[in-house]
Nucleic acid binder design. Structure first.
Lengths: 345, 345
DNA sequence: CTGTTAGCGCTTTCAC
DNA sequence: GTGAAAGCGCTAACAG
């Protein structure tokens, strides 16, 4: 049985007391240790191949050095949020615990994690516009440092990082109009049996209407269920469209349905029909033929920003003026809209 | 300042000693506690809203209750592995720490994590056929329980869960041939400037050749660089093809290049050209128009299996006969191959 | 400025 | 069967 190497062993070998070892390791402020001893300590650590016991340290300090990320593991974009969060954690010496929808009351158990001192804070990736007042209250009561990505747009007291949907639609329309000179048709998909747009989609639609009014262009909105493709409905609409026409879909899935209809009608996207999507939820825009232009949510940046702010909260750093952080979408021009030759790659 | 509720407080309130509290919480074997006291303890825990301190427990037991998952956070399929691993961890009371390629020697630091007692084991998602003897040696020396997903196919001493590539190709060919009656052409993409197929692709190609020989069909293999699309090359080949023809691409990207060429030539996939892919690396097969049939790697199942085995190792459970676990691919029939009406959804 | 020491909260062994 | 007590390895407060 090999006993673990402890700071005690290091101290003995280096001929100092354990406090000094700790001080060297943590750079404890307000405790000076001579250059010579510091070297001795470092040498002893090297020699014994010593590692601090993270559990023991955490127990002593009451900080786990971990945050939890929670989100829908079926959603590929969650991975980008994770990537951003992970990067920030590594930079700042934290560790990222991963949790996902697993059934039941798993969100509850995240608060338990905090009570168990397993995490110092929590980052959740929520669906756009998500808000759960009961949950927010529980978090607050537990005193759990918390940050949401894409949730709680309307609760000024809950910290979150959000996409500016209005701005993203304006960005898309500006570009589409500049490229085609055509009045864009807005294709609005929705989930579920009833038309019940979420927060993001309400803002998108409003932005479309405002923009069109501003430009004195005629609004055209097609509203359609996302699931259960009604091929005839789409084909009929596309058939009646002047050629060329420009369309902006609130979701990339709308782009897909347009592609399918165009495929049936033998209409050529990017030539007779210009299409742009206001998101890239499927993650497939680049792989569609022709590739689908879109404004995309910068999930990675949101993950970074979210984790960064969360760690600031945990460390009690300079509290932000507002707990809300708004980030802009990114326009990605592909083949489904008339191309302007790129300059310089 | 609110002091933390400890097992001491619980013991006091329940009128028992701390050992009993611990025994109730952990169901310690070989320590019986009367039903009455057990209830008292549970009541006290409830009343005081007590949670065990995970750090303190870990420190005492020397087990962190965490495993680390490491992989390429740019790869959407890693998320499926994570999902599988996460599910198993939750089931078995473990926690999953996430790490990713972050630059530098980050893999080294995973071993440090173990030395710091932050993790009890490690699961890595490697690229197909990956093997790094130096790393394997370091892991072994550290005594770190380790499991790779898709790595070390040829090292019998390194535990990993692997896809049977040969079987996946045979599955695809069987289906394609059954549907079309045509001798499938094999389209083999490769990365990098030189043709240097990896372990998986060598097995795939060999399986194709064997299968064709077995069926006494003429082999046709198109070999092509994955990056830098040579449109003329593709168009020329497709032009000369009899209609209809059947093609199997080793990567879904090959499917994409076929689609693009077909698009240029106005050839209809699923009618004049039947295409199947032997993977779904881009994650876009279902979104292509028409949707691309493929055999897919069951990453979620691999994550589950990998994590499960890893936890078994950690807990010293029934050591497996072989550290290798082979899983079969899944055939997903879509529109790019002639459809057989599905029965019962 | 350096070294000693008292716990952090838990589990488990050991007497009773 | 129950209760006391000995640490796990670390850090921070406090003497020297």
């Amino acid at each position: 049985m090999n006993k673990r190497v402890t700071s005690h062993d290091v101290a003995k070998l280096a001929g100092v007391s354990r406090g000094v070892v700790s001080a060297v390791l943590n750079g404890t402020p307000g405790i000076r240790v001579s250059e010579e001893k510091r070297r001795d300590v470092l040498k002893a650590i090297e020699e014994l191949n010593y590692s601090v016991d993270a559990q023991a340290r955490s127990m002593r300090t009451g900080k786990s050095g971990c945050i939890a990320a929670y989100g829908n593991l079926d959603n590929p974009f969650f991975l980008q949020v994770l990537q951003g969060a992970q990067r920030v954690c590594t930079e700042r010496g934290y560790h990222l615990l991963l949790y996902g929808y697993n059934g039941l009351e798993s969100k509850q158990s995240l608060i338990a994690l905090f009570n168990q001192r397993r995490i110092d804070g929590l980052l959740t990736k929520d669906v756009t516009g998500y808000a759960d007042d009961k949950w927010a209250a529980m978090v607050k009561e537990a005193g759990l440092p918390y940050m949401s990505v894409e949730g709680y747009p309307e609760r000024e007291d809950v910290p979150s990082v959000l996409l500016d949907y209005g701005a993203s639609i304006r960005l898309a329309l500006d570009e589409l109009y500049k490229l085609t000179g055509l009045p864009p048709i807005y294709v609005e998909l929705y989930n579920g049996p009833e038309y019940a747009p979420n927060w993001g989609d309400r803002h998108r639609l409003a932005a479309y209407k405002d923009w069109m009014r501003e430009k004195l262009l005629p609004e055209t909105v097609w509203t359609c269920k996302a699931d259960g493709e009604d091929a005839d409905w789409w084909d009929e609409r596309l058939r009646q469209l002047p050629r060329p026409s420009a369309l902006l879909a609130n979701w990339s899935r709308g782009g897909l349905l347009l592609y399918r209809s165009a495929h049936r009608l033998n209409l050529r996207i990017g030539k007779e029909l210009y299409v742009m999507a206001a998101d890239n939820t499927m993650g497939a825009n680049a792989y569609m033929v022709p590739a689908l232009s879109s404004v995309e949510v910068p999930y990675l940046a949101m993950g970074e920003a979210g984790a960064g702010r969360l760690l600031d909260m945990i460390e009690g750093k300079h509290p932000q003026a507002s707990p809300k952080l708004w980030v802009p979408a990114t326009l990605v021009q592909r083949e489904s809209t008339p191309g302007i030759p790129m300059v310089g790659g």
